[in-house]
């Protein structure tokens, strides 16, 4: 009986500790200290939530900057990758057709090298960023579609560039949704 009683008391103590006290404690702290981040880093426009800066969205109009290809078509309620290995013929074909698409869309010469991030889908399919090079590559197209000066757009892209964390983690990158928002509402 002693063992059962001990077990039961420990079960109760840990249920309260890990089921109530810990979550309430952590939730209180983050809601006080970093409310915006804890709630999903939402982006609001005129009081309406239109997205999160952590979740990529699909842009197809040529008036906007485009994000990376997505194996799940930017479906926000799942996440997933192509799951094709490096020796997959299908991956080579897919990437080839993506490269063509980017070249045709942006009116590029056939021998131009395309940044890898713009033609390979991300692991989650929801990458909100593209590299600085990928953004600059699209500047001419967006500028002519919108009838604005190329230099202004380059400035806007550079302004929206995020530096690598701590100076060495990751690469210089541009948040596509934020950049497109600024295009429309600057």
């Amino acid at each position: 009986m002693g063992v059962l009683k001990q077990g039961f008391i420990i079960f109760i103590i840990f249920s309260v500790l890990t089921g109530i006290i810990y979550p309430v404690f952590i939730t209180t702290i983050v809601q006080l200290v970093m409310k915006d981040k804890a709630n999903g880093s939402f982006i609001k426009l005129n009081g309406r939530i239109i997205g999160s800066e952590l979740i990529g969205q699909k842009f197809t109009s040529s008036k906007y900057f485009h994000g990376r290809p997505s194996a799940i078509d930017y479906s926000g309620n799942i996440s997933g990758a192509s799951n094709l290995g490096p020796t997959s013929r299908k991956l080579i074909e897919l990437t080839g057709s993506e490269i063509n698409k980017v070249k045709v869309r942006n009116n590029l010469a056939p021998d131009v090298k395309i940044p890898a991030d713009l033609v390979l889908s991300s692991a989650s399919g929801l990458d909100p960023h593209i590299s600085l090079q990928s953004a600059l590559l699209q500047v001419s197209r967006v500028a002519s579609e919108r009838g604005v000066a190329r230099e202004d757009l380059v400035k806007l892209v550079v302004k929206n560039t995020e530096k690598p964390q701590l100076g060495f983690l990751g690469e210089e990158r541009v948040n596509v949704l934020k950049l497109n928002l600024e295009l429309d509402y600057r």
């Binding site: 192509s82 799951n83 490096p86 020796t87 692991a123 989650s124």
Partner: peptide, 11 residues
């Protein structure tokens, strides 16, 4: 997404 790993990472 493990499938997209290069062979030696999968190894």
């Amino acid at each position: 997404m493990h499938d997209s790993l290069t062979p030696l990472s999968g190894f």
